[in-house]
Computed example of a mutant assay.
Amino acid sequence: MRYIRAAAKTLLWRIPGGIVQTTMFLVAFAIGLSWYFAPALIAASRRDPNTSAIFTLNLLLGWSVIGWVLAMKRAWSSISY
């Protein structure tokens, strides 16, 4: 527990702008994560019946550009209700 407190003090309070840097990192991470899962989010917003398949494709093969493009194509080409 002592080490966690020391690390938190070092990262957040002793470095000038540590809270700002941490906040900016978390915001950038959230934006990147939402961009990565954009095909799954689009499929969910369009109420696609195959949203879970698109999410799985995006999760497993989205790291490759081809897998992400296939998931995006599948999300946009599906029928919305």
Results as ranks from 00 to 15, higher is better:
N58M: 01
L59N: 04
Y3A: 11
M24H: 10
P49C: 07
G18N: 05
P16E: 03
S45L: 15
Y3L: 15
M1W: 15
R46Y: 11
A8T: 05
T10Q: 14
T10F: 15
P49W: 13
V69N: 02
I54T: 00
L61G: 01
I66T: 08
V27A: 06
A30M: 10
L11W: 08
V65W: 15
A30G: 03
A75M: 02
P16W: 06
S77R: 12
R5L: 15
R5K: 13
I19W: 09
Y3V: 13
S78L: 02
Y81D: 12
I66L: 14
A8M: 13
S45G: 09
F37V: 02
V20F: 08
R5F: 13
M24Q: 10
T56K: 09
P16G: 01
Y3S: 06
T56H: 09
G32M: 08
A7I: 10
I54F: 00
G62M: 05
S78W: 04
T51L: 05
A7Q: 09
G17A: 03
A53W: 12
W68Q: 00
W76E: 15
S64T: 15
P16R: 04
F37A: 01
G67K: 07
F55L: 14
N50H: 14
V20H: 06
S64W: 12
Y81H: 13
K9E: 06
L59A: 13
G67M: 06
R47L: 10
W35Q: 04
I15R: 14
P39C: 03
S77I: 00
L70Y: 07
L26G: 07
I54E: 00
I54L: 02
A44G: 13
A53M: 13
L59K: 07
V20A: 12
Y81E: 10
G67F: 10
M72P: 02
S80K: 12
G67L: 05
D48S: 08
L26Q: 08
A44C: 06
A8W: 14
S77D: 15
A7R: 10
A6Q: 12
L11M: 07
L57Q: 15
D48E: 12
A30D: 09
A44S: 12
F55P: 00
Q21H: 04
V20M: 06
V27K: 03
A6T: 12
R47W: 10
I54V: 04
L11Q: 02
L60M: 11
I54W: 01
S34D: 02
A40N: 00
